[in-house]
Write a protein that binds this DNA or RNA. Structure first.
Lengths: 244, 244
DNA sequence: CTATTTTATTGACATTTATCAATTAGTTTT
DNA sequence: AAAACTAATTGATAAATGTCAATAAAATAG
C-alpha cells in the first residue's frame, strides 16, 4: 500500500527495520515517532531489541532504574502499582502500539510501577539516553511527548477521581465500560483477566468485585460467563458510574 | 543585589516587568522560565496581567476553557477536583512561584480542576497561545515543561496510591506530614485550612478526620489547637503512613 | 482420566467509614 | 455584650467494604 513511501517506518512494509514502534505511520493515526525523520529514527532505534513476553511475565519492574522505554507492538499489558502488603492497583491496560516508561522519565529515572504481560507480547526496548538526546534536537518530538505526558496525567486524574469518589458499584461499572469501550471494543468481550485482576482495576477485593458483578447480573445489566462479559444495558451502567 | 544582571527578570529587582513569574531567576533555583531569553519572555508575558485574589476566591474553575496559565507569585492556593454531589478532593496545595494550568493543556484545553485561593494571592495570567507558540521555538523550554508535567504526574500517582491503599489513619498522617514538610516547613505549623479542607485533602469526611486527629493527639503523636498542629513523633506518623 | 492445584464463589462476620443529629465553641454582626 | 451565624466536636447508628473460612468449579499435571 505505502511501499517505499518512507524508508523509516510503515507497518505494512514487512522489511521495515523499526516496525515494532509504529502502527500506521503513513497510514492513519499520528504517532509520537511520526515526528521523527528517518535519520532521527535511526538514531533512536539503531540498536533496539525486539523481545517476546509470555502472559504473566514482568516487562518492567517497579523501583528499578528507568533505562529504557518500551514500545508495545502487539498484545495487552497491565500497568500495576505494587503497594506494600501485596495490595496491587492496576492503573491501566496497555494496547498495541503504545509507548510506556514506567513513570519518572526525565524526573528521577526510576520506574514507579510495574508493567506485566497479559497476553503474549512483542515489544522493543529503546535507550532513554537516546530519547533524551533526541528531545534536545527535535522540538516537535518534545511537544508530542509533552502531549503524551499530559494525556497520561489526565487519565491518572480520572482514575483517581473514580477510585476515590465512588462506591463499589460505580467503580465496577467504570471497569466494565473501560474494558468494553477502550480496550476490547467488542460486546460481549472475552477477557484474559482474572477476577483478582478485575478487582485490582476497581480498587477492591476480588470477593467484593464478584458480589458487585453478581448484582449487575441479577439486575439484567450484564451477562457473564467465565471469560466473557456482555454489557446489556450500557446506559444504566453509565448511570451507575456517574452516580458513584 | 543583582541589579541590571538581567533586564528580564529577578525578584530582587523591583522594577522588573515580569517579576511575578520568577522567584530567583538569577539567584538560585532553576525555573521553567529560566530557559527563556529576554526576548522570549517578552513574547510570553508582554500582555500578562497581575491579579490579586482574596482567600476563598476561585482562580480558575473546573470545566472552563483553558485559555491562560497562572503563575502564583505569593500566597497559597488549593487544587480541587469537584466531584458530583459536592464531594471535593484537594489534590495539592500550591505555594509561591509555581505554575499551574488546571490540567489538560495541549490535550483538550479544558480545566480539569478548580484552583482557589487559601490566603491572599498575587498571581498573573499568561496566554496559552503564547505558551504554545514558544514551545515550538525553544526546545529547552519544552523539555522543562515536559519535566514539570512528569513531576506532576508522579505526584498524582502518589496521591492515588495513598488515597486508595490506606486506611484513614495512614491518610491523615500523610496529610499532616505533607503540610509540615512540603508546605509550611515549620513545626508547629499554623494553618488557614478548615477541618473540612484537611478532610478533603485526606479523602474522608470532616468528622472522620477530626476523630482520627484526636486519636493521634491522645496517643501523644501530635498536639493541636484550633489553627496549629505540632508534630511530636514524626517517626511514628511515618510508620502509620507506611503501614496504611 | 484422576489427582492436584489454582481460581471463583458464597456466607458469616468484623472492621472501617459515612451519615445524621445534637452540642459546643468560635466569629461576626449589630 | 447579645444575637446570629459558622465551624468544630461528639455520639449513636447505618452503610460500605474487607476478612476469613468453606465450598465449588476449572485448569493443569501426572
Amino acid at each position: 500500500m505505502s511501499e517505499g513511501l518512507d524508508v523509516a517506518g510503515c507497518a505494512n512494509c514487512v522489511e521495515c527495520k523499526y516496525d515494532c514502534c509504529f502502527s500506521n505511520r503513513n497510514c492513519g493515526n499520528p504517532h509520537i515517532f511520526g515526528m521523527l525523520s528517518a535519520e532521527e529514527l535511526h538514531l533512536l532505534m539503531d540498536n533496539k531489541r525486539q523481545i517476546h513476553f509470555r502472559p504473566g511475565e514482568t516487562i518492567m519492574k517497579q523501583n528499578t532504574p528507568l533505562t529504557h522505554l518500551v514500545c508495545l507492538k502487539n498484545g495487552l499489558a497491565k500497568v500495576v502499582s505494587e503497594g506494600p502488603k501485596g495490595k496491587n492497583l492496576i492503573l491501566q491496560i496497555i494496547k498495541s502500539n503504545s509507548i510506556f516508561t514506567g513513570g519518572g522519565s526525565i524526573v528521577d529515572d526510576f520506574r514507579h510501577f510495574t508493567v506485566a504481560a497479559i497476553t503474549d507480547i512483542d515489544c522493543c526496548f529503546i535507550d532513554t539516553s537516546r530519547l533524551y538526546n533526541l528531545l534536545t534536537k527535535n522540538n516537535n518530538f518534545s511537544i508530542e511527548l509533552l502531549k503524551h505526558s499530559n494525556t497520561q496525567h489526565l487519565n491518572m486524574l480520572s482514575a483517581l477521581i473514580n477510585l476515590t469518589n465512588k462506591y463499589m458499584p460505580g467503580r465496577v461499572a467504570d471497569t466494565l465500560l473501560y474494558l468494553k469501550n477502550n480496550i476490547f471494543e467488542t460486546n460481549p468481550f472475552n477477557f484474559i483477566l482474572s477476577k483478582q485482576e478485575l478487582a485490582d482495576m476497581s480498587g477492591m477485593t476480588k470477593e467484593s468485585f464478584i458480589r458487585s458483578l453478581k448484582e449487575f447480573e441479577d439486575s439484567g445489566l450484564i451477562r457473564h460467563t467465565r471469560n466473557s462479559i456482555e454489557i446489556l444495558k450500557e446506559n444504566e451502567l453509565l448511570e451507575i458510574s456517574r452516580n458513584g
